[in-house]
Computed example of a mutant assay.
Amino acid sequence: MNIRKLNIGEKLPMELLLLADPSKDIVEEYVNRGDCFVAESEQQIVGVYVLLPTRPETVELVNVAVVKEQHGRGMGKQLVMDAIQVAKIKGYKTMEIGTGNSSIEQLALYQKCGFRIIGVDMDFFIKHYPEEIFENGIQCRDMIRLSQDL
């Protein structure tokens, strides 16, 4: 697997990005402000993440997605660890990430990668998304915020 920055003018892997965030408008907005990275295997895009500078020396990992056929094979962890390395190389001191209260596997993954829970944005997904979101039989209401010193 090769991970690289998406080239200027290259088509966004929107279907993949929408696996992690169901709002096309929100995805387009943060991709335009950040850097999109793709993972390729056999000349196919199989994973994606987006780094978004938020404050001086702070970057947020705003989208991590892997094609369904590759779930459970450690690719998500490889993407998160790559994002951490890229952020360090770019000189960031802190990386943040947010995920839904219903995103149980993602919460576990991020903590395994060294992130710690620092807060909760109550009703974030109720306020910012027009449709209800359900994962694992749980309504996604709150944004769980995590952070890591780099």
Rank of each mutant, 00 (worst) to 15 (best):
V27H: 00
G91H: 05
E69Q: 15
Y30H: 11
V80N: 04
R55Y: 14
T58R: 07
L16I: 03
M81I: 03
S23I: 04
R55T: 04
K68W: 01
Q43T: 00
E15M: 02
I89D: 12
Q44S: 09
N7H: 11
A39R: 02
I89Y: 07
N32P: 00
K88E: 00
I26Q: 08
V62C: 12
D35T: 06
D35M: 06
V66E: 06
F37M: 02
L18N: 06
V38F: 05
V64E: 04
P13N: 10
P13W: 03
M81T: 07
T54G: 13
V66S: 00
E28T: 01
P22K: 10
C36D: 07
L79R: 12
L51Y: 06
L61T: 03
L79H: 11
E10W: 02
G74T: 10
E42C: 04
E28D: 01
N63W: 03
Q78Y: 09
Q70E: 10
M81W: 11
T58P: 03
K88N: 07
K68M: 09
L52E: 15
V86M: 03
A65V: 11
E15W: 02
G74L: 08
V48Y: 10
G74E: 02
P53C: 00
V66D: 05
Q44G: 02
V62P: 00
I45K: 03
L79F: 10
N32T: 13
V62H: 09
R73Q: 12
S41P: 00
L52Y: 05
R73D: 03
S41M: 13
Q43A: 10
I84P: 09
I26G: 00
K68L: 12
